[in-house]
Amino acid sequence: MADFDLHELLAAPILAMNEAEAQNSARYVELLEEYAFEPAKAGGIRKLSTLSFSYMRAEPDGTAQLQNVEIPLVQFLPISGVSIETAKLNYALKINPSTEKASGRLKMLGRLAETVESNTPLSGNLNIEIQLKQVDMPQGVMSLLQASSSGVREVPMPKEEPAPPVDVPVELPDKFIDFEVLEKSAKVIAPGQDYATVIRPSFVEGLKKYDAKVSLTLSSHPKGALSFEGQDKQVINDREDFKIKFLTSPRIDEYKASTKVKLLILVSAEIDGKEAAQFTHSIVLQRRISRKRPEKIITKKPRKVIK
């Protein structure tokens, strides 16, 4: 058996362990590349291999939406690295007595000593006891995991959209609502009085086939003859009684006898958010006409005096 430098003998097992660790790391990367990524395409960037799941997600409005989620496989891979935690080396060396002194340095030559029970070829005198530990994740892999966990993609599945509405031209009759006056708080209106009437709208068939929103706006003729509670548009529904309250102007007595006081109802129909049609319905309100005639001033023409 040849003699070796003592430092070579001591370093050889340590170098072997380093080499083993390097090979282990290389294999770890190989496994990661093999399992975590899509096969390489020529000149292209390698994509993470992903698992795609679909599930139902509850939406805030109470509906369920089919959702898709993609999770990189690397999140699940049981690929772990190991490294040498401790190593215990036991050498039994036999130092050659012919120790040389070469180039000013003491050179010890030695060999592994033969064991006492050296009769079997398997027996040796270099005992290495290695304890392995699960390796800390390399920073690069940690970054990859972090990046891939943020790369979990939730993709809403396309909803089955209802067929777009067919653009049918809206054809409504000029007067698409009839009104029936059900109640009146008084037969005639008087100046400065509260008044109320209940009307019942009836939508014509032509309007019912559209999902129309019908609203009315109240006004009066002459302008200012009546003042209403709530000046804004008010939505009405078919066959649903609607109460109109107003206050008559103190000046309605000053109107000419021929002037008719009217309650004007501007009816608007909106279809698909667009103004489709409108008309004005008027209800004539009877008022008490003062019988008191204004005093007539008669001026008599002076008689011609013929002299």
Binding site: Y35, S49, L51, S52, F53, S54, M56, L73, P78, I79
Partner: peptide, 25 residues
């Protein structure tokens, strides 16, 4: 009790990787 259904058609590469890995283990 959400059920996440695996879309096999869209996960073919990942599934074959897992099968290989399972066989190795």
């Amino acid at each position: 009790k959400t059920v996440l259904q695996l879309n096999r058609a869209q996960s073919q590469t990942a599934i074959s990787s897992m099968k290989k890995l399972q066989a190795g283990l």
